[in-house]
Every structure is written in C-alpha cells, then in structure tokens.
C-alpha cells in the first residue's frame, strides 16, 4: 500500500461526507433497532420477563438480524455502492479524478475501499443499535432488570464479521456495474433483480451460486423451519471467491475503459 493510496482514501472518504450514501448507512443501520425500541416501549409490561430470560441476547440478536440479513444488508450494499459511484457521475467529476496524479489502481481501490469501509460501518453501527435497543428500554422503563444473560460479544463479533464477508460479493458486483453504466438505474435495477432472484433461489439446492444469497443463507442456516436449502460448502469462502472475481473484473473494466470521465 503506497502513501498515495492513503491520501486518495482520505480524499474519497471526504467525498462521501453528507452524501446520500453516507446518510443511508446511518439510517439503515439504526432502522431495525429503532423499531425494536419502539415496540418494546409500547409493550413495556412484557419487558421484565423478557429481560430475565436466559437467552435474552441471542433472541434479540436473531430477531434483529432477520431483517438485516434478508433485506437491509443486501439492499444497503446495492444502494451504497451505486450512490458512492454516482457521486462522480452526478458531479461530472470522473474527468477530474482521472487527471489526478494517481495510478488507475489507486483510483479504483481507494474508492472501493471507501465502499467496503461504509459496509463495515453499517454492520458495526447495526450491532451498536442492537445493544442500544436492549439498553434504552431498560433505562426508560422502571422495573425492567438489566439482562442477567452474559453478552456473548466474541460470538456476535464473529458472526458480524461473517455477515460482512457475505455482503462483499454484492458490493463488488455493484461496483463493477456502477463503473460500467453511467445511468444510476442500471446498477440499482440489476441489483434488485439479483436480490429478488436470490430470495427466490433460497429453496433451490444450487441457490448458493447466486452471489447475493450469502447473508440470507447465513441467517437461515439455523432456521428450524428449513426455509432455505443450506449447501454443503463454506458459503463464506464462496462469497470471498466471488468478491475477488468481481473485483478483478471491475478493475479490468476500469483499466481498459477507452473514455475516462
């Protein structure tokens, strides 16, 4: 990693400031925890029993991650990637970026690194939101005890990391599409089609070949109802393989583009 990459990354990180993508990450990460807090405050009479339960944190974790793994994480990866790339198109700024004294690799990977950092920020903020969704009702409602069940921090951190890995192929595929098509609707439309395709393919034994399925499969692998066919392969490794493939494809496309900006 060269010093130019660090400088380019700082520059790219500043670009996302106050952008729609940056707001989406924050709003999306706190949406489900906010719904949980509101629901708990409304049904506050049930909270003392709930907070005394043995598996309090695991139940909260599972219920919170349901919407995240199935909907918010893939959709956030689709939208955030497309929105970050769209900043350059909308402001007619690709030509300025390409006229900077930076190698194509530095330009490509610094922007992609910002997208990946935003996705990391998304899952970490979501975890913080889950914790707050437990803490806030406890602080606001009298008679609600602090959960006696110890917080399995290491387990949750490990699962968060795997969910993050699961969304990487989506980010890489969307980055490739966003670099290829100037029209914002193309990557967004393709992303949503892939997401719907992934949902439909969950019960198919080869559904795991669709690179948008991994966060869903990861969540549903412990689902007693068996809503998805869980493949006998390590889906996180498959996700990483797709991530590398799409990243390489996106870089080649970026490098050999005839007209830049």
């Amino acid at each position: 990693m060269t010093i130019d990459f660090i400088h380019a990354l700082q520059s790219e990180w500043l670009k996302r400031k106050r952008s729609l993508g940056a707001w989406l990450v924050i709003a999306g990460a706190f949406f489900t925890p906010t719904v949980v807090i509101v629901a708990r405050l409304v049904r506050h009479s049930r909270l003392p029993a709930l907070y005394s339960a043995d598996a309090f944190w695991t139940l909260l974790w599972r219920s919170s991650w349901q919407s995240m793994a199935i909907f918010f994480l893939p959709v956030a990866a689709i939208l955030a990637t497309s929105l970050v790339t769209q900043i350059e198109y909308r402001n007619n700024a690709w030509k300025q970026v390409h006229a900077l004294p930076l190698s194509p690799a530095t330009i490509f990977f610094s922007k992609f690194a910002v997208i990946i950092l935003m996705m990391a920020q998304f899952v970490v903020l979501f975890d913080v939101g889950i914790y707050l969704s437990a803490l806030i009702p406890y602080l606001l409602i009298s008679g609600v005890p602090y959960p006696t069940d110890p917080l399995p921090l290491r387990l949750f951190s490990g699962q968060t990391l795997l969910y993050f890995v699961d969304c990487l192929p989506i980010a890489a595929a969307q980055y490739l599409l966003s670099l290829r098509f100037r029209n914002f609707l193309v990557p967004i439309g393709a992303g949503f089609l892939m997401w719907i395709g992934a949902l439909s393919a969950l019960s198919w034994k080869f559904g795991f070949v669709i690179p948008y399925t991994y966060s869903m499969l990861d969540y549903l692998k412990d689902d007693p109802a068996g809503k998805a066919v869980i493949p006998n392969v390590n889906i996180h490794l498959v996700a990483l393989a797709y991530f590398l493939l799409f990243t390489f494809g996106g870089y080649c496309l970026f490098l050999f583009k005839g007209e830049k900006g």
């Binding site: 500043l14 670009k15 400031k17 106050r18 952008s19 900043i87 909308r90 402001n91 007619n92 700024a93 690709w94 030509k95 300025q96 970026v97 006229a99 900006g261």
Partner: peptide, 13 residues
Amino acid sequence: GSLIESPSVYEHL
C-alpha cells in the same frame, strides 16, 4: 492543472 468542459464540483460539499 486542468479544467475540461464544465467544472468538476461536488455539489454536496
């Protein structure tokens, strides 16, 4: 230093 056609300005900044 270059300015080609319309200026590249990030409007949210």
